[in-house]
Design a protein around this nucleic acid. Structure first.
Lengths: 337, 337
DNA sequence: GTGAAAGCGCTAACAT
DNA sequence: ATGTTAGCGCTTTCAC
């Protein structure tokens, strides 16, 4: 029925083990035998049995990505990067969307998951990267994991992140350079650690330029479009209106733009608005958003690489990847100056 | 080290096989032994080894989802539904984003993939569901697959879809009911079969109402925002302007809205715009888009269920799931009538 | 209702 | 550079 390694061995006139060596690209096989085996495998349409490999080697050739991310683009891009790394190592990526919503219990879900499955590693995307219980569960079971964009360091365990503080600082400086002093800030979801970091970057840049922050213009959102609308409605009705708004992500920035439009404010000539993340949305609203491009796919790639790589020479703990400020029309590309 | 079925058997004072029976919820075990075994497993923190199970039962407990979808929200939602079904059956979902771009060769990628891995089934999301080579490859290797939203039937193989034609017809009728006769249509990417179906629905509704279609207002897009802008620029400059635009997806509809705004047209009072898909974007632009909600997560769930279910009583071939017309401000929720 | 033995397809450890 | 043997942890088959 199904073709096994023995069939290939028979056809190629070598031992099982030699076939195994060829399939795993192990060194000590002569070029001639290697070719012979490869040809036989191709002829027979042989595909190795993951389960058998896994059982024999006590590896699973599987890594999992756990996430509960509101933004589909973010999740998909991490997956893209992670699968790219997996392919380089003969691994595969299992996805486990948690989607448990607010205040719900990740642990139960994760526990149930691990009850079925042994993976060789886990990528923890936000906000799971900051969930103490989940992390305890993983270390308890001795499962390797890499947190993506966690709020704190994880001891010896490498983490993959971008520099949210610096990026927010750069964005704020960008606004200041364009002549803005009256800048409002919309914070992100308190559960996501990036929220605090982005706010911190904003404050640092303001302080460095000696600009006073108006507390009435600091509002709390939750990364959704609607929360951007709500936030904007708090400060866009005042007599004292900011000249620029820095929203902690693109969705909220889009909300701010929408409310501005409703209030008859023209962006960017009356009001500059900037976002964060460079999701597809940033390029899909009008005016298009000035924003920070996160290296999301690269983060997924790097995280998977760290899980899979045997190259233990690199003992870097913090893998901080580069972001980029993408300047578009929403921040006074024309108009203000 | 790792706890095995033998450890549990020893602790519970029964045979390996009995433990196996309990773990698999097989019937013929006395209630007492069942409880004893369960307790032992819990105490020992036992988790079955997927690889061993797979090897012994010649199942992998894995299904894969192959996709190359431009829209992250769509892909993520299929994943959500599919993993939900997987959890009900002790399975896991492997994702394989193809992302090969235009005109590139899926077969090579898929072949390489199957070379590593034996999955118990494959979900083919658009546009792979229509790729003859990929499908041939799968049937050749005797791998079960379910196409999501394919353009044609697949013989005996069940397919999961929504009724694009009917949905487009309903949307068109919605516009007509609101008094529109001068309706422009922006087609989708020619590679995606849904494009033709949606256009067909539009034509059917127009014909049924005896409204002539103005050929100058039928344009071809490719599902991107930019193509919506481009399409709109073709008919929004004419003296003869349509009063409504039906774009084949939300991204293009957003593009139409953006161009309308630039041209000083107010949506919906000067121009109604409707989309298709109900992606997050639909709710994030201003005015918010009237659109068709696809049952995407349900499609993922159903596809996985079909792959996993042993319930062969149901021999339905075409699983056509319900859509919904979501009415928001972009189509004259107020204003026109 | 329960158990013993065999074997799934592969790799590890040790030959040669 | 190649082969032999044992065994990974489970399910299957067939006993009892």
């Amino acid at each position: 029925m199904t073709v096994t390694i023995t069939d290939v061995a028979k056809k190629a006139g070598v031992s099982m083990k030699t076939v195994s060596r060829v399939m795993n690209n192990e060194p000590s096989v002569s070029k001639a035998t290697r070719e012979k085996v490869k040809a036989a495998a191709r002829d027979l349409n042989y595909t190795p049995n993951l389960a058998a490999r896994g059982l024999a080697s006590s590896k699973s050739y599987l890594i999992a990505m756990l996430y509960d991310i509101p933004s589909p683009g973010y999740a998909i891009n991490i997956q893209k990067g992670a699968t790219r790394a997996c392919r380089e190592h003969g691994y595969h990526l299992i996805v486990e969307p948690l989607d448990t919503g607010e205040g719900s219990d990740y642990v139960e879900v994760v526990e149930n998951l691990l009850g079925h499955l042994r993976v060789d590693g886990v990528i923890l995307a936000p906000p799971l990267c900051d969930n103490g219980q989940v992390i305890r569960l993983l270390s308890q079971r001795n499962i390797a994991y890499i947190p993506i964009a966690p709020s704190t360091e994880h001891g010896e365990i490498p983490i993959v992140k971008m520099n949210d503080v610096r990026a927010a600082r750069e964005m704020t400086e960008h606004l200041i350079r364009h002549g803005h002093k009256d800048i409002a800030f919309v914070k992100g979801h308190p559960r996501h650690s990036a929220s605090a970091l982005r706010y911190q970057g904003f404050r640092e840049a303001m302080r460095a330029s000696g600009i006073r922050i108006n507390p009435a213009w600091i509002t709390e959102g939750d990364f959704t479009y609607k929360s951007g609308v709500d936030a904007a409605s708090k400060f866009l009705n005042d007599k004292e209106c900011p000249s620029a708004v820095f929203a902690s992500n693109d969705d909220m920035a889009a909300g701010v733009i929408a409310l501005a439009a409703r209030n008859g404010l023209s962006v960017p000539s009356d009001l500059s608005v900037v976002g964060f993340d460079d999701t597809p949305l940033a390029d899909s609203v009008w005016p298009r958003l000035t924003t920070i491009r996160q290296p999301v796919e690269e983060m997924g790639y790097r995280a998977a690489k760290l899980l899979l790589s045997v190259d233990k020479n690199d003992d870097t703990i913090i893998h901080s990847l580069d972001h980029a400020l993408i300047e578009r029309e929403s921040s006074g590309f024309f108009g203000i100056e």
